[in-house]
Design a protein around this nucleic acid. Sequence first.
DNA 1: AGTGTCAGAGAACGATCGTTCTCTGCCCTC
DNA 2: GAGGGCAGAGAACGATCGTTCTCTGACACT
Lengths: 183, 183
Amino acid sequence: MDRAEAEVRLLDAAEELFYGRGIQAVGMDQVRAASGVSLKRLYQLYPSKSELLVACLERRDLRWRTRLAEYAESGPGGVERVLAVYDWLYEWFSEPDFRGCAFINSFGELGAVDPAVAVTVRAHKSAFHDYMAGLVAAAGESGQTVGPLVLLAEGAMTAAAISGSPEPARQARQGAAQLLAAR
Amino acid sequence: MDRAEAEVRLLDAAEELFYGRGIQAVGMDQVRAASGVSLKRLYQLYPSKSELLVACLERRDLRWRTRLAEYAESGPGGVERVLAVYDWLYEWFSEPDFRGCAFINSFGELGAVDPAVAVTVRAHKSAFHDYMAGLVAAAGESGQTVGPLVLLAEGAMTAAAISGSPEPARQARQGAAQLLAAR
DNA sequence: AGTGTCAGAGAACGATCGTTCTCTGCCCTC
DNA sequence: GAGGGCAGAGAACGATCGTTCTCTGACACT
């Protein structure tokens, strides 16, 4: 197993465990067991739990935004492309192991005590905001709606996590459609 | 110091610490030091950290909803009463020690491993949803908007926490006003 | 083949946690 | 005034955590 594969296995295992049970509820030895990578190697690649977590979040940020963009840009453009974001949220919320937004969860758990986590979470949310702003601008809509549109998505993530239902995505889509229809 | 005062001091101290730094980042000994209540008494009143946390959340739920209702119902009725919710959020977000919604944070940290926490958080969010539904109905608006209106508020809470700015409350209010104007 | 290098397994370490126990001193009752 | 129960302070306990160290065995090279 070379360095690249060890990294992948570590990030896969750590991300699933951290996301599924919370960060402080997972010990480094559980990451070792789930990944099959020895503790020694783990600490060579990621010198602390915090750095492992940040690496997980950064990879997740990339994958999440890529998947979202692929979905949105596979359909028609304009306003429908904005609304497709909420359709994608519905699919995400429906995944069996969905447990909310990993960034919101991480920020709530460690944002106050781990500055690196706070920075990473802010970067992710900022990137999402910028992406939505781009879609809205491409649809020729007023930039004033971007804020509420993002809030609908953020609210849907937490509501879906807490209620255990994907339905908030539908409600967010309805709200977004109304906001975009009003002129 | 009688039992009632010990409870108040414990809940005050624990709530501030848990909310400000995260739950697992705070030890029971810090709660003892901040409250001035001995460890023995603490465990007589709340036999475990989880029960102390749930008691904090339940009291916070009551106080939070009471403060919100007092604010909303101190102004005019109708649609403006719905919008007043977002004005209140702005004031809340502007408090110096604001760190997001304690229920969302607690759920993210412990929802997956502590069922009592999950139940308490769901109850709080459900109560907030019902309260908003009541305001919307009293304003003579369609019940269909309740979902998006709640999502705007939830999204504003997390966005304000992560960005460290109260501005999301303004954006949520704008979005809500548009949703209520559209018919 | 013999030797040096490295990786893995897992013990070890020091810290901290939630929780309980011990000891001491005070207050109330007779 | 003597004795008993109770509360507070803080040590103690067992578990677990993040992180490091030790030991052993396998592989690479001359």
